[in-house]
Design a protein around this nucleic acid. Structure first.
Length: 370
DNA sequence: TCTGGGGTCCTAGGACCC
DNA sequence: TCTGGGGTCCTAGGACCC
């Protein structure tokens, strides 16, 4: 066991991240796509973006979340494939089963990512390196996919290690080497530091995680609030978050972006109804109901607003969801507004109980939104 | 360049209650 | 006439992640 002055047991955490997941599954299922630039996502006509790009496509500078129109300008010969989420779920379950065969302490983060707490089993495999090799081998043989693996004394280190090792990588950061490993990396590598936060830190003159670790906590708190102090901790390589196998769901939502902007009318309301149906279906699949119904509206100029209402009891049926959503929509729309997206979500989730009302008045006395 | 769809978490302010 | 303190619930927006 590693030396640790704090007296706490040293943990061994694995982060496993499937490479270019959606695109790799498409190449697996259709051998004609192997070795070719593949883009999984929506069509450029439907204002689609790239959900996943094969490594062949990334060489052209294509990245996830990039508008498909731009991706195709960068890589005109790319093959665009519509996403098949059911299939990705299937493969994801297959891979999670492999992880759970190693340890029950598996925390899925997304379809293509998971943490494993292998503290108790790592010695059975002859150490972290050997365990990671074994995991990679099993995923390749069983699912036909490559996975990048990072191993470290905590989640933060494991995650950044797998990121650094991509693709088909393996990187073990032993306890005690956290600071050394992190110091030269960009603060952007820290989980939670996005473009906005990065611009704040740029104003402070901090570029690397090492500099962030050295910075005055007060200065960080002044510009970033509580998060500044958290980032300061993380920059020292300190991260006590446990691997959690259970994540109770907090909300269920569905949204659609229209191929062209829509004004209020039968077409838009038809979309709202379809979204309410979809949310109902998914709530029932999971045996859930929720008290809070929300709508999301994105205007033609990309400005986005949300409105929500909390009902007296939890609902899981189209009629109630749709009624609440329409009420919220009526409260904000003007006839000349043009929308590019509408969405519906249900939160405040519970197990549905007994008879459900079609419509309940808001729980609060604030009825402005209605 | 022209921006998806699924989420989580955080902040801040207001209403309300005792 | 000039107004506490603590706590909870609710809403809206925004940053972020995959």
């Amino acid at each position: 066991m590693a030396h640790n002055p704090g007296g706490e047991r040293s943990r061994t955490i694995v982060h496993a991240d499937l490479d270019a997941f959606f695109a790799s599954v498409e190449q697996l299922d259709n051998p004609e796509l192997k070795g070719k630039p593949v883009l999984v996502g929506g069509s450029p006509q439907a204002r689609g973006v790239v959900a996943a790009a094969s490594y062949e496509a990334r060489r052209f500078g294509v990245r996830s979340a990039m508008p498909m129109a731009r991706a195709l300008r960068l890589c005109p010969e790319a093959i665009v494939v519509a996403p098949r989420f059911q299939r990705y779920h299937q493969v994801s379950e297959q891979v999670l089963a492999i992880y759970r065969d190693i340890t029950p302490l598996v925390e899925p983060l997304a379809l293509d990512e998971a943490f494993l707490d292998v503290t108790e089993v790592v010695e059975q495999y002859g150490g972290a390196q050997a365990l990671a090799q074994e995991l990679k081998g099993r995923v390749r043989r069983t699912a036909g996919l490559t996975v990048s693996v990072g191993v470290g004394p905590n989640k933060l280190i494991a995650k950044i290690a797998s990121e650094q090792s991509k693709p088909d990588g393996l990187l073990v950061v032993p306890p005690g080497q956290e600071q050394q490993f992190l110091a030269p990396l960009s603060v952007r590598a820290l989980w939670g530091i996005g473009p906005k936060t990065e611009s704040v830190r740029a104003a402070l003159g901090i570029a690397t995680i090492g500099q962030l670790a050295q910075a005055e906590p007060q200065a960080l708190a002044a510009s970033l609030g509580q998060r500044g102090l958290l980032f300061h901790q993380l920059a020292q390589g300190i991260d006590q978050r446990p691997v959690e196998t259970e994540h109770p769901r907090k909300s269920v939502g569905a949204e659609t972006t229209f191929p062209r902007d829509l004004q209020d009318g039968p077409e838009l309301r038809g979309h709202l109804l379809a979204l309410a149906r979809e949310v109902e279906q998914r709530l029932r699949q999971e045996g859930l109901a929720g008290r809070t119904v929300g709508v999301k509206l994105r205007y033609a100029d990309f400005r986005t607003i949300t409105r929500q209402v909390t009902l007296a009891s939890a609902v899981d049926d189209v009629a109630s969801i749709q009624a609440a959503a329409l009420g919220l929509f009526e409260g904000v729309r003007s006839p000349e507004d043009r929308f590019r997206l509408v969405g519906i979500s249900v939160s405040g989730l519970t197990e549905p109980g007994g008879q459900l009302p079609l419509w309940s008045p808001p729980a609060t006395s604030d009825r402005r939104s209605l």
